[in-house]
Amino acid sequence: MGRFISAAVLRDLAKSDKNIVLEEDSVLTPSAKDLAKELGLTIIKGRQEIIGRSVSAQKQKEVTQKPVKSEPVILKDDLKAAVQKILGEVLKPACENPKATHVKGETIVVQPFPEAPPGQKVGLLDVIDSRVGNLACGFMTFDHSRLPWFLNYDEVDYIIEGDFVLEVEGNVFHAKAGDVVYIPKGSQVVFSSPTFCKVFYATYPANWADFCE
């Protein structure tokens, strides 16, 4: 099967000349044939006229020598394959082989968060990450500090101790030990504590750091 020529491609070619020369194995779509008749185009495959008005042998020679520039036509199957490939990448799990994992409390040491603004005492540690699961979790601490942040992932926070403040979309949530906070993907937030607080968090997907701007 030759290359399909759509009405859109044919209309673009007709901007420069009413005589259109195509490759021998080109195939016009039904709408392209109708457009050729409507515009009075002369469609020539090599040196053979197939649609429109007649031209002289000399004119055929002239238009045959002109290069034809056209955009490729994306077929339905090609588009479907492209969409499936994109979805496969987007929906690809963070962890190819998730496994049950036990993290002992005595091994957990929250580290200073390097992305915190200067002078802000913010700690963070992932205890479960994309190496073992599709859902990550860990601990955050805020010592009289603030952390502006954009979440391009979903997050749930459980306050273990202290006073936790979350500012999101014009709302301010004051949470205390035992409270749970959910933050949807796409939220611009500010985490903070007027004193000291420790928070357990869970995020989806597990590779949340890959989506940080």
Rank of each mutant, 00 (worst) to 15 (best):
A8E: 08
A8Y: 01
A8V: 07
V9Q: 02
L10V: 07
L10W: 04
D12H: 08
A14L: 06
A14W: 01
K15C: 04
S16E: 08
S16D: 05
D17W: 01
D17K: 10
K18I: 06
I20S: 00
I20V: 05
L22T: 01
L22N: 00
E24Y: 02
S26H: 00
L28I: 04
P30F: 07
P30I: 04
S31T: 13
A32Y: 00
K33F: 05
D34R: 10
L35T: 09
L35C: 11
L35Q: 07
A36K: 02
K37D: 15
K37C: 14
G40R: 04
G40Q: 06
L41M: 11
L41W: 05
I43S: 00
I43V: 15
I44M: 03
K45T: 12
G46F: 02
R47A: 15
E49H: 07
E49Y: 03
E49N: 09
I50T: 14
G52D: 03
S54P: 08
S54G: 11
S56I: 09
A57M: 08
K59H: 06
Q60T: 14
K61P: 03
E62R: 09
V63E: 02
T64A: 15
K66A: 13
K66Y: 07
P67V: 05
K69C: 09
K69A: 08
E71N: 11
E71I: 11
E71D: 10
P72Y: 01
I74A: 04
D77I: 10
L79D: 03
K80N: 12
K80A: 13
A81C: 05
A82S: 13
A82C: 04
V83K: 09
V83N: 06
V83H: 05
Q84I: 11
K85E: 13
I86G: 08
L87E: 13
G88V: 12
G88I: 09
G88Q: 11
E89S: 14
E89Y: 11
V90T: 15
L91I: 11
P93T: 06
C95P: 04
C95I: 08
C95E: 06
E96W: 02
E96C: 07
E96K: 14
E96R: 12
N97C: 10
P98H: 01
K99V: 12
K99W: 03
A100C: 08
A100Q: 11
T101N: 04
H102T: 13
K104F: 13
G105A: 11
E106Q: 13
V109L: 09
V109A: 09
V110P: 02
V110A: 09
V110K: 04
F113V: 01
F113S: 00
P114Q: 10
P114C: 12
E115Q: 14
E115L: 15
A116E: 04
P117E: 10
P117D: 10
P118V: 14
P118S: 15
P118R: 14
G119V: 10
G119Y: 08
Q120D: 03
Q120A: 04
K121L: 09
V122G: 04
G123Q: 05
